[in-house]
Amino acid sequence: MSPEPERPPRPARVSRRGFIGRTTAASLGAGALPRPDQATAAAAAAAAAGAPGQPLPGPPGTEVTLRVNGAEHRVGVDNRATLLDTLRERLRITGPKKGCDRGQCGACTVHIDGRTALSCLTLAVAAHEREVTTVEGLADGDVPHPVQRAFIKADAFQCGFCTPGQIMSAVALVEHGPVGSDDAIREFMSGNLCRCAAYPHIVRAVRQAGSTGRKR
């Protein structure tokens, strides 16, 4: 009688709970390992950050000389800083107003070398060693500029937010005259918006100041 052949061993039984547990553990282990692209990005970020405790380099800066209303200021500015932000935030000259910050409302109007400029669109570095005049620099001591007096007399402002820019544009028109007709005044002042709609009073003020010309 021949011996009974040996049977192969049965595979170990895996319960449903055990199978789920092993699968979950394998998934978590795989998820903990970063993918090659993640590892590369992490290494690049670490290299860019430099050694621990070393600050990242700041934006490029330049020391400029700003001559504002007859006073000279030396100030270090970010190369991307606007003249408006530098005047208001660094020099505390708050006459120019930040309205739209896009060069559309005229509230930030100043004079650079005697010509009107939108300070929200002008880089501070572009005004280096140039003559900047804001509404604070118009008066002759305690005597207001003729345009300022005309604006008060004609009641050419309501909330007053746009008034500094309106006055700076009006001064440019009056001092480089002739003022011309009301339509000419409206055309010249069209870049200055007044949300209170005081336009008729503004035109009247400019016309009154124009009769005075450059006299103070």
Score class of each variant (00 low, 15 high):
Arg67His: 13
Asp37Lys: 11
Leu33Ala: 05
Arg10Glu: 10
Pro59Trp: 01
Gly210Val: 00
Ala26His: 00
Leu121Gly: 04
Pro57Thr: 12
Leu56Gln: 06
Cys159Trp: 04
Ala127Phe: 03
Ala39Pro: 08
Pro60Tyr: 04
Gly137Met: 07
Ala46Lys: 13
Arg13Val: 15
Gly114Ser: 11
Thr94Met: 03
Thr109Ser: 04
Ala127Ile: 08
Phe151Gly: 05
Arg17Val: 15
Ala47Arg: 13
Met1Ala: 10
Ser190Tyr: 09
Val14Trp: 02
Gln158Leu: 10
Val14Pro: 00
Arg74Asp: 05
Ala156Lys: 14
Asn69Arg: 04
Cys162Pro: 08
Pro36Trp: 09
Leu66Glu: 02
Thr134Asn: 06
Glu72Ser: 14
Leu83Arg: 04
Met1Tyr: 13
Glu6Trp: 05
Pro200Cys: 06
Gly53Ile: 11
Thr23Gly: 13
Pro5Ala: 00
Glu129Asp: 15
Arg88Asn: 14
Gln166Cys: 00
Leu87Pro: 01
Thr65Cys: 06
Thr86Trp: 00
Ala46Gln: 09
Ser27Cys: 12
Leu33Ile: 14
Ala150Ile: 02
Ser27Thr: 15
Thr133His: 08
Cys120Lys: 00
His201Ser: 15
Ala32Trp: 03
Gly29Ser: 14
Ala71Leu: 11
Leu138Thr: 00
Pro144His: 12
Gln166Arg: 03
Arg7Gln: 14
Val179Tyr: 03
Pro59Cys: 05
Leu84Lys: 11
Leu118Met: 11
Val174Ala: 05
Arg22Gly: 04
Thr86Arg: 06
Gly106Phe: 01
Ile112Trp: 04
Leu123Ser: 01
Asp183Lys: 05
Gln208Cys: 07
Ile185Asp: 00
Ala81Phe: 02
Glu131Lys: 14
Thr86Asp: 01
His111Arg: 12
Ala44His: 09
Pro8Leu: 01
Glu4Gly: 04
Arg74Trp: 06
Ser15Cys: 06
Gly18Lys: 13
